[in-house]
């Protein structure tokens, strides 16, 4: 049976038809064609599908689509404003924190969730925040350095 699901995606209200067994990842990728959350394992173990739900990181592959009704979902598509990259995006790019790029959107959102709550995290706090996102290229050191650079204020938000 299909249900109308309404939620807020990257600041915009959306309505979409969804089955009860559809995951948020299914709805984002297969129905809304929001492609930054990646399908890596379908069971919450890799982190490539991480999105923010009301500002908190969640696995979109483990989130029932219908359960996000009325809530706010953010993907990497919602990060850059008017073409201006988010500080984390610039820092990831300049620190070579993305190799193949498949884990990158999830990794950036995991880092964003941390910095939004804790703008000046310790090394351990950063490692803890990103340790749920597997990267087989092994970019962890570069991701750490990128997040540290943002936390130090080296990538101030570009004012419009």
């Amino acid at each position: 049976m299909k249900y109308i699901l309404s939620f807020v995606l990257n600041g915009q209200p959306v309505d979409v038809l969804a089955e009860p067994t559809d995951t948020l990842l299914d709805v984002l990728r297969e129905k809304l064609r929001v492609m930054s959350p990646k399908r890596g394992c379908d069971e919450g173990d890799c982190g490539a599908c991480t999105v923010l739900l009301n500002g908190e990181p969640v696995r979109s592959c483990l989130t029932l689509a219908l359960s996000v009704a009325g809530q706010e979902v953010m993907t990497v598509e919602g990060l850059s404003k008017n073409g201006k990259l988010h500080p984390l995006q610039r820092a990831f790019h300049e620190h070579y924190a993305a190799q193949c790029g498949f884990c990158t959107p999830g990794m950036i959102l995991a880092a964003k969730a941390l910095l939004d709550k804790n703008p000046h995290p310790t090394r351990e706090e950063i490692v803890e925040a990103i340790s749920g996102n597997l990267c087989r290229c092994g970019t962890y050191q570069e991701v750490l350095e990128a997040v540290q650079a943002v936390a130090r204020g080296e990538y101030a938000e570009v004012k419009e």
């Binding site: 379908d42 069971e43 029932l64």
Partner: peptide, 19 residues
Amino acid sequence: GGTDLLPKINYYQLKPEVL
């Protein structure tokens, strides 16, 4: 939360009739 349940649904090990 669905974190234990969804893998079973995603891998066709569980076909729920009522969620």
